[in-house]
Simulated scan of single mutants.
Amino acid sequence: MPFTALRSRAAAAGLLVAAVLALATACHGYGGRAGGPVTAVSPAPDHPAPGDGQNPPPAPGGPAACTPEMLKFHAGAMPRRHHRMLLTVTNISDRTCDFAAQRYPLLRFGDGRRPALPAIPGSRPFSPVALKPDATAYAMVVTRNGGRGGPDHHRISQFGVALAARSAPVQVGLDGPPVRVDPRTATVTYWQPSRAAARPW
């Protein structure tokens, strides 16, 4: 075979090999990895975080403590009950509150230097009283224990009520005539959820 024909065939074979290599490079890129466009597969979305507009934020831990500005106070002697006075508080706010931090009212009769009246232990409810808007809680006050009178017995027409230790008392006026009390022996129940629960004390 003439030398020129062999040379032409070699050149053609070389061009064919070059074309194949160029095509392989275009399809696979450098290093044999795919070089064409890649469609990304998004991972499954996480659960939305609270407060991101998709799920409601978690509910608060519980109701706030009742404060004097949330309540309306009433007090007065109990009809046909000796030495008994009923204290009531009604929630006049638009929020639920409770007495979990201080479960009985801190009452002071007299000049304010005396300690608050002790609570009657057996009157403690199983759970703290919570007040929804317009709901009422009750506490029975035993104004004196025994005796017909003494140097510390006096009549009151108002007294101080605090809802927490070291807080300023609210002055509550009596609905009705003054009541005779003995600050040395007077006691008070824990807050009760109903009048019926407070009445036996």
Rank of each mutant, 00 (worst) to 15 (best):
P121C: 04
R113T: 14
A64I: 11
P151N: 07
G149T: 09
T88N: 02
T96S: 06
A64K: 11
A64P: 02
T136L: 11
P68V: 15
P128A: 15
G62P: 02
D134C: 12
A137H: 03
D134T: 05
D98W: 14
A135K: 11
P128Y: 06
P125N: 13
G112V: 03
R84E: 07
G62S: 07
D111H: 02
G146C: 12
V141C: 10
L106N: 02
L71M: 07
K132M: 10
T90D: 03
P63F: 05
D94Q: 08
Q102S: 13
R81A: 13
E69T: 13
G76C: 02
R81H: 14
R148C: 05
L107E: 04
Q102V: 12
C97V: 13
F99S: 01
G147C: 09
A130W: 01
L86G: 01
P63E: 15
G112E: 10
D152C: 09
R148A: 12
S93I: 05
R108F: 08
G150S: 09
I156D: 08
K132N: 12
H153F: 15
A119E: 10
P125F: 02
P105V: 04
K72D: 13
R84S: 08
V141G: 03
R80P: 04
P105G: 11
A135V: 12
R84N: 15
L107T: 00
S157P: 01
P115N: 14
D94R: 00
R80A: 15
I156T: 09
L71R: 03
P125H: 12
R144I: 04
G147R: 12
L106W: 04
F109E: 01
G110M: 07
K132I: 04
R84H: 02
R95T: 13
G62R: 00
Y138V: 10
F126C: 01
S127I: 07
G61H: 13
V89G: 04
H154T: 02
I92Y: 05
K72N: 15
L131T: 08
H154R: 06
G147N: 03
T96H: 00
P118W: 02
R124M: 10
H154E: 11
L87N: 05
H82N: 10
K132Q: 13
R80D: 10
R103K: 05
F99G: 00
A130T: 08
P79M: 08
A65D: 14
G146S: 14
R80F: 14
H74P: 00
L117E: 01
V141A: 08
A75L: 04
L107A: 04
P68H: 12
I92V: 14
P151F: 05
R155K: 14
A137M: 06
G110C: 08
P128H: 05
R113V: 01
P125A: 06
M70W: 07
P121F: 11
F99R: 00
A119N: 07
P151V: 15
R95A: 09
C97T: 11
R155D: 15
C66T: 03
